[in-house]
Simulated assay, not measured.
Amino acid sequence: MTELPVLIYDGDCGFCTRSVRLAVRLPVRMRVRTWQETDLAALGATEDRARREVLWVDRTGGVFGGAAAVAELLKSCRAPWPALGWITSAPLVRTLAAHAYRWVADNRHRLPGSTPACQLPPDQRPHRD
Rank of each mutant, 00 (worst) to 15 (best):
L55T: 03
L4H: 10
D106R: 13
D10F: 12
H109E: 12
A100W: 11
P122K: 07
E37K: 15
L111V: 14
F64D: 02
Q119S: 15
G113N: 01
P80M: 09
V54L: 13
T46N: 01
A100F: 08
S76W: 06
V104N: 02
R102E: 13
Q119H: 13
A97P: 04
G85N: 03
T115H: 09
Y101M: 07
T60N: 06
V54N: 08
L4Y: 11
Y9N: 05
R25D: 12
L96F: 09
Q124C: 03
V104T: 11
A97Y: 12
H127L: 13
E3M: 11
M30L: 15
E47W: 07
W86I: 01
D48Y: 09
E72S: 08
A67L: 04
W86K: 14
L26N: 08
A97N: 13
D58H: 02
P122F: 00
E72A: 09
G113R: 06
P121S: 07
A98H: 11
L111P: 10
P91Q: 03
V70A: 11
W103S: 00
P80H: 06
P121H: 02
S89I: 09
P121E: 03
L120Q: 14
V28Y: 02
R29E: 15
P80N: 08
V6E: 04
P27F: 08
T60L: 15
L26K: 03
R33L: 12
H127K: 11
A50R: 05
G44E: 05
R25W: 08
V32C: 05
H109G: 13
A67H: 04
R102Q: 12
L22A: 11
R94E: 06
V93A: 09
P112W: 12
S19Q: 14
A67D: 04
K75G: 00
T95P: 04
W86V: 09
A68G: 09
W56A: 09
P80Y: 06
T34N: 01
F64W: 08
H127R: 15
T46D: 09
L84N: 03
R18G: 15
V6P: 02
D48K: 12
R52D: 05
D123H: 15
L111D: 12
P122G: 05
H109I: 00
